[in-house]
Design a protein around this nucleic acid. Structure first.
Lengths: 370, 370
DNA sequence: GCTGATTGGGAAAGCGCATTCCCACTGCAT
DNA sequence: ATGCAGTGGGAATGCGCTTTCCCAATCAGC
């Protein structure tokens, strides 16, 4: 038994397909009460479900929102995805998910697939990169996105504008003040941290990471500190772990070198106060913390550490992680809404979404009292 | 500029749409080399992207896989989603995501939406429930799923069969041996835990939760322990937290009552050894642990605790959580594959996926040495 | 009671593609 | 030279729906 069609419903109700269509799927013209009733009854006696593909073809709009993330299992993206999902629901649309591991080539492919499905809008989360090896991929991605926009699509971008995008009206970026927030974080930290700062960053060229690094350095400079050394590794937990391992070795070395003095200074003498680590995201921070711990170092005793994002699942981590809270769900919602609003032709200035802001959240991992 | 169509490409290449279709989208008939080349050039000079909706309409298959989860931000579901995503990619399909908070009514709606989009298969993760208030919703959900199956759809179910499903060939359940694993966990725990066991479960009627509770009790019984008391609360972190708060109070009371004796016994005398808490999933366990900690209790000193799932993001939690490792990604993959295989008409017995198994993983949170 | 405006329903033309059917042509064997 | 299978391309149909256009019937206004 194949799914029943509008025509069957119409026949059963004794009306034309046109009329059936008008009553079942909101049309401007409302058929008479009696007829409408007949059609409706016929419809659910047959268990009629409209074929969205056909509807889409006819109306040329699909009710689909494409979402591109690096990794849906990463809580950062999962939170954004939840927001997107909610916004989609408001618009009575469904979301098509693509995970790309951040590879521009895959992202391009995803965009093409979304375009093929005539997604009404697409939301692209996850940092763009400007790494040389991604250059070509980025260009293709931008071209694909541009084409999508020129064909009437709208894309909501989380964070940074897409590199090389030229289609004017199609892009709607939700700006996340990564740099400012990182600067503020640095400012607050300098108040309590006496030792040197070290930054664990993602690969160079990853915008989100670069912004946060830059902001943090700026904050340090403003506070009269010298710039932090920057360790680069993968933008995930294991990246953080690796960097953490390197730092652990260094901390231990420093301690050994200076261990001649009395035991009053906890992290060696020689002017080397306890270092403060800033990892550009929470997941990396957790990885780094795990590495330190595995090397017998304790936080905040032997080193302090701060992250970024304030991932909900990680809030129960101990010592509680100092970080910058970002309204991830809201970010996802806004990206989705802004793209949709433009899609609907509503004036973008009207009901513009409030700018994203974050909140410095100092917790145990950077306490210096102990 | 609207997206270009097959017809335009054909015209530019000087061939008929039929031929263009044959060369651009794999058909049984392969046009000649020269013509194929002409068409392909025309296609990408126009930036042609096939309209998947139209293709779907014509072929009546959409290349879509519907995925239903309770909450994509829950790491459990996120991990499954990742597996589904991977399997979808193998099949060159895209996944449509729906989050339903576990409400059968929403799930029914999601199924209908998937059916409307003619999803080739749908994967439904997240525990079904048999709670009385969900009864009606469940029936409707089952009806909707049945209808979807009768219309040729295939559904992959994670965990428990859908209640009330009658369509024979359409369902493919990936069985997770929750009960057995919980029993094994109990068995292993009884070896080291001397005190009473307490179970923090989800709402009664949630299959996953019920299975784990039942299995755990069975394991206890087998080891000659008396059944654990079962505390019920929400199947998420805050549920665990609440229950944890209640337990904390109880532990403190017990300790106060028996605090007359010498300080050698850590958790009061009076025969009340330190209790062992089994939370039916990791997230709840973390919540409970947080509650205990907030009440000044320490794990495993004042109480031990174990979870279930071995959520990756939670592995860095300290004390490390004893739990049961479940191959969540693999579960997602299998659910997706089994539904797809049936869809493709491949013999299901052939290349049948290996049964899911878990692994008891004891860590610090249940250590009794300290 | 007649005209013009309005309403309410149906017929039909696509939306973009796959696919079946048909036809012209080639190459081979007879 | 003639017939045949085989090959490669095009015409046409239909997937299920929306929407424009058209037409009959109703209503108001004079």
């Amino acid at each position: 038994m194949a799914a029943s069609t509008l025509t069957e419903v119409a026949r059963l109700a004794g009306v034309s397909p046109a009329t059936a269509s008008r009553v079942l799927n909101g049309s401007a013209r409302k058929p008479g009460q009696d007829i409408a009733e007949r059609v409706r009854q016929a419809a659910d006696s047959l268990g009629y479900i409209p074929n969205a593909q056909a509807q889409g073809l006819a109306k040329s709009s699909s009710g689909l929102i494409g979402l591109i993330v690096h990794d849906i299992a990463d809580p950062y993206f999962a939170a954004i995805a939840l927001g997107v999902q909610e916004a989609a629901r408001e618009q009575r649309k469904m979301v098509l998910l693509a995970t790309t591991a951040g590879a521009p080539a895959d992202e391009k492919e995803a965009v093409a697939a979304f375009a093929a499905r005539r997604a009404d809008s697409i939301v692209i989360a996850g940092s763009r990169s400007s790494r040389p090896e991604d250059k070509e991929g980025n260009a293709e991605l931008a071209a694909e996105l541009d084409r999508y926009c020129r064909n009437g699509g709208h894309v909501g971008v989380v964070g940074h504008p897409v590199v090389g995008a030229t289609a004017a009206g199609g892009y709607h970026v939700v700006t996340v003040p990564n740099e400012e927030l990182a600067a503020s974080l640095a400012a607050e930290l300098t108040a309590s941290q006496e030792g040197d700062f070290v930054i664990i960053g993602g690969p160079e060229g990853l915008f989100t990471s670069d912004d946060r690094v830059r902001g943090f350095q700026r904050g340090l400079a403003k506070a009269g500190r010298h710039p932090a050394e920057v360790l680069r590794s993968a933008f995930n937990r294991s990246g953080g772990y690796e960097a953490g391992l390197a730092l652990a070795a260094r901390i231990k070395d420093a301690r050994r070198d200076g261990s001649s003095g009395a035991g009053s200074e906890r992290a060696g003498s020689k002017g080397t106060k306890r270092i403060c680590i800033f990892a550009v995201n929470d997941v990396m921070a957790i990885g780094a913390a795990a590495a330190l711990r595995s090397e017998g170092l304790r936080i905040p005793r032997d080193a302090t550490i701060a992250g970024f994002d304030d991932i909900e699942t990680l809030r129960d981590f101990r010592p509680a992680l100092s970080t910058v809270r970002l309204p991830l769900e809201e970010i996802g919602r806004q990206a989705t809404r802004s793209a949709a609003r433009a899609d609907a032709g509503t004036d973008d200035a009207e009901g513009a979404t409030s700018p994203i802001s974050g909140q410095i959240t100092l917790r145990r991992s950077t306490e210096t009292a102990a």
